[in-house]
């Protein structure tokens, strides 16, 4: 449910096809990720980010719903069954050997098993998942507040972002498999509703929804909420990871800040 179901990989091919006899086709160059006009338009995103950070404060909670609002299973989206060998191996033994690694700009790097995570104080929240595609789905999530883990690892003073590295391969690029990854700023990382969820609607988090761990970032859109989390890295700069834009979809033109 975090990922986008639509294939946009062939947008350039599509552009050539669709722009013939198209009235609005003259705006198709905006789809070019390096177009200078597009870069100007993109400045509005940072305005949105700054405006939301300025206005919204850090403690506002996303709305939590009543049990009666859970009317359907959480809709899985994006990767729903990673084929990666290491993941399949862990899944085959019910993630008993899984260790969540937390490293980077922390004083105490951590390695935690699922049992250790489950033994920590948990948070359960019934929230609305908003996908960038436009749909919403309400579900109950249970997990460890990320803030608790970051406190335990003791985040260094230069830290700015939290990066989630995932198991699932999205596509095979020239330099090998491209795996899903995401990042959020510390403000969202320390937000009380930001949890590493291992439970969904009272059950163990299923593979389709991101087992063993997926992050909930309730004030942003679904693609920020990485599934199949392998490790967490605390960083001060997004440029050294993946395509340098802070996430798999961000490298493909989506906004890094998905609060709208």
């Amino acid at each position: 449910m975090t990922r986008l179901a639509l294939t946009r990989r062939h947008f350039l091919t599509g552009a050539t096809l669709a722009s013939t006899a198209s009235l609005a086709g003259c705006f198709d160059p905006l789809g070019d990720r390096d177009s200078s006009v597009r870069n100007v338009l993109e400045t509005a995103n940072s305005l949105t980010y700054r405006a939301q950070r300025l206005l919204l404060g850090s403690d506002d909670l996303a709305r939590e719903y009543a049990e009666s609002e859970i009317r359907q299973p959480q809709r899985p989206n994006g990767s729903t069954n990673p084929r990666d060998a290491d993941y399949r191996d862990l899944a085959s033994r019910n993630f008993a050997d899984y260790r969540l690694k937390i490293s980077g700009l922390v004083e105490t790097p951590l390695e935690l098993s699922l049992d250790e995570l489950r033994a920590m104080p948990s948070r359960t929240q019934i929230t609305r998942h908003d996908c960038v595609e436009g749909w919403s789905c309400i579900a109950k999530w249970t997990g460890v507040p990320l803030a608790a883990l970051l406190r335990q690892a003791r985040v260094g003073p230069t830290a700015r972002f939290v990066l989630f590295e995932c198991f699932d391969t999205m596509e095979n690029g020239f330099t090998g498999p491209v795996k899903y990854y995401e990042s959020i700023d510390l403000r969202d990382a320390l937000h009380p509703q930001t949890i590493l969820a291992y439970g969904l609607n009272g059950e163990t988090l299923p593979v389709a929804n991101g087992a063993p761990l997926r992050v909930r970032v309730e004030r942003q859109l679904g693609y920020k909420m990485a599934k199949y989390i392998r490790s967490i890295v605390v960083i001060d700069d997004l440029s050294g990871h993946g395509g340098g834009n802070g996430g798999y979809w961000e490298d493909r033109g989506y906004e890094w800040f998905a609060g709208i």
Partner: peptide, 25 residues
């Protein structure tokens, strides 16, 4: 929708959002 009804004319949600939010401001 047909291509002439959307910007860009082909399927590209990311660009659509960038254009939409710029002009929203």
């Amino acid at each position: 929708f047909p291509g002439w009804l959307t910007i860009p004319g082909y399927r590209d949600l990311a660009t659509g959002r960038i254009v939409h939010f710029f002009f929203a401001w």
